[in-house]
Design a protein around this nucleic acid. Structure first.
Length: 583
RNA sequence: GUACCCGUAGCUCAGUUGGAUAGAGCGUCUCCCUCCGAAGGAGAAGGCCGUUGGUUCAAGUCCAAUCGGGUACGCCA
């Protein structure tokens, strides 16, 4: 969009002065944006201010040159210099009308760009321990990750959505033990309080797994040797939990491309391999970590112990990190070294990982690990997301995992639906907390942003249904190619402007890895549409359907079709199902 | 003690690689509509961008301090 305008501006800059050197500057480096205030014009560029210094000109002088060139451009209605050197300009209606045609012709591809140049990016998200059902935190993680993945695809990356399964370690053992205890209970043995300790998992789902264990393997398991039995219980429980997790994710519309098992990675001796690579670079040593300062609860237990450490400080971490415990076993982080080596070996140079904000202490060491293991060839971008507060009647719902009184992902989806959940989780910056008010999020009024957007889509669909009863179906081709010269109203042009900037909005959201910007752009587009709709109430000229003129109707419907395409595109990226009518 | 994040209107938040008079929704106030193109519309008030310094033509945005809030801090995963 605006390519020829960019070229025009760049030519003006080139010919303005031959003093400066602007070789290698492409049209893309000229930014065209919507000015803050409508009265200033439809479009603006700050190119004069960007290039003035290099050309040893004052911004305003250069702006005059640009302005003059723009005024000669066929699409430009008028342009003027403003402020310190901005050039504000407006386009002829015909130029905007061509945007409508372009949107309809390119359809789903309209928002696409090729920033990623088909390179691979690995988006790892959720990666919940398979020791319990997904909860609300995972919901934000899942939605954020999946929308980021869609965005990256949209700008031309080859995306892998990946889930890392922590299927070994203490937590899994505890789960297996909990299941076995419930299994015993099912066989009629009463549980001793001393057996079912606080560490055990007490949720209802544990009993369910135990029941399934009984069903699949019968009641004779307890005679198998302890180690073997525990191993069987581990595998069985993880498989069941994973199945449940996948179902939960599907209820939110999230489907992973790949699940990677920690056990599998470790069985391939990836830990040893990773440590070897680090050792080769001199980044592994035996040492003692300094005692953490301040009030850490474990302070009293502190004891200096020699451990095998990774020199992560060399790569920007605050302290070196333990990879082998004093008892000779690997730490969890060692497993992560292996996992990220695995990703690197699979060819990913760009990785994104989504973690809860309580993992903030983990970011630097992971970045260090990826950097060290790949000889700085690969990089990982870690996004932390904040908590979600759930409110009922405006009051926060207290949650504590210990008492089992926490909200599961499934409960939220069952209560308000996939689309509302997704929208709420994605509509704010990942760095800020979200208040999720069960009453407000499902409110059917213009105050509710999701309703507002969905309603715009539904209204458009409703107009098409109405039009069909009068003029019959109108195909896309006609909508794209029809004469659009009746589209001239300010409100119509404003809507087209918003559509024109959609690819920029998608690109910006993707590059910044900030999906919430998409929600904002969608709201703006919906707002322009509703405004236009309301104008039609008082000014019947602006109504979309003109019973007396099929040509006028088709022209107006073409604008609606373009709007519908983009709303659909945005909703698709967000994983929200567009509604063709409000019920 | 250290690291990361947040601090912008009464409330919840936007604010793009530094750009024009800092925006939106809610709430408040005023008017209009209540015509199935229904689940509202038009407008107004509301700000020392936590504080103080610095960098420059230009700072909510970058840097340094500082205050307030959150999170996390050796062998848990």
């Amino acid at each position: 969009m605006f390519q020829s305008i960019r070229v025009c501006i760049l030519d003006a800059i080139r010919s303005a002065s031959d003093l400066g050197d602007i070789a290698g500057v492409s049209e893309e480096s000229i930014s065209i944006e919507q000015p803050r205030e409508k009265v200033l014009g439809e479009l603006a560029t700050n190119a004069a201010m960007v290039f003035a210094e290099r050309l040893r000109m004052t911004p305003r002088a250069l702006a005059e040159n640009i302005c003059e060139a723009l005024n000669k451009h066929l699409d430009v209605r008028q342009s003027e210099v403003a402020g310190p050197g901005f050039v504000n300009f407006s386009l002829n209606a015909s130029a905007w009308q061509r945007v409508v045609a372009a949107v309809i012709e390119t359809g789903d591809n309209y928002g696409k760009t090729n920033i990623g140049n088909n390179t691979s990016v690995n988006v790892e998200f959720v990666s919940a321990n398979p020791t319990g059902p997904l909860h609300t935190g995972h919901a934000r993680n899942a939605v954020f990750g999946s929308v980021v993945a869609s965005l990256m695809e949209k700008i031309g990356y080859k995306v892998t959505r990946e889930f890392y399964i922590n299927d070994r370690g203490n937590q899994i053992t505890l789960l297996a033990q909990s299941v076995l205890l419930r299994y015993k209970e099912l066989l009629g043995e009463s549980l001793q309080a001393s057996e079912f300790t606080e560490d055990m998992y007490s949720g209802e789902y544990v009993k369910e797994i135990a029941r399934e264990l009984l069903q699949n393997h019968g009641g004779g398991l307890l005679s198998t040797p302890n180690e073997e039995l525990l191993e069987l219980a581990r595998k069985f429980s993880v498989a069941k939990m994973l199945k449940k997790i996948k179902e939960d994710l599907r209820s939110l519309g999230v489907v992973m491309d790949k699940y990677t098992s920690e056990t599998e990675v470790c069985d391939r001796d990836m830990v040893e391999e990773a440590v070897k690579i680090l050792a080769k670079r001199g980044d592994v040593y035996e040492g003692v970590l300094p005692k953490p300062k301040g009030k850490v609860s474990t302070e009293d237990d502190w004891e200096e112990r020699p451990q095998t450490l990774f020199r992560s400080t060399k790569y920007g971490d605050d302290v070196d990190r333990t990879i082998k415990k004093s008892d000779g076993s690997w730490t969890y982080f060692a497993g992560d070294l292996a996992y990220h080596l695995d990703k690197i070996k699979r060819g990913y140079k760009a990785m994104i990982a989504v973690l809860g904000a309580d993992h903030n202490g983990y970011v630097k060491r992971l970045k260090a690990a990826v950097s060290a293991l790949s000889e700085s060839e690969a990089a990982i971008d870690i996004r932390l997301y904040q908590l979600v507060n759930f409110l009922e009647d405006g009051k926060p719902i207290r949650m504590s995992k210990r008492s089992g009184n926490f909200i599961t992902l499934r409960e939220v989806v069952d209560k308000v639906g996939k689309d509302v959940t997704r929208f709420m989780m994605i509509s704010r910056h990942h760095d800020v907390m979200i208040d999720f008010d069960f009453a407000k999020v499902v409110e059917c009024s213009m105050k509710n942003p999701l309703f507002y957007i969905q309603y715009a889509y539904a209204r458009i669909c409703s107009v098409f249904r109405h039009s069909e009863t009068i003029f019959g179906p109108i195909d896309r081709e006609e909508l794209a190619s029809c004469d659009k010269s009746v589209i001239t109203d300010e409100a119509e042009i404003s809507l087209i402007e918003a559509l024109a900037f959609w690819p920029d909005a998608v690109g910006a959201a993707a590059v910044a890895i900030e999906p919430h910007r998409l929600a904002k752009s969608m709201r703006e587009i919906a707002s322009c549409f509703h405004f236009l709709w309301n104008r039609g109430k008082t000014n019947t000229e602006l109504r979309f359907i003109d019973k007396d003129s099929r040509a006028n109707t088709v022209a107006r419907l073409s604008l609606l079709e373009a709007t519908r395409c983009i709303l659909e595109d945005g909703l698709n990226i967000m994983g929200i199902t567009p509604l063709t009518e409000m019920t």
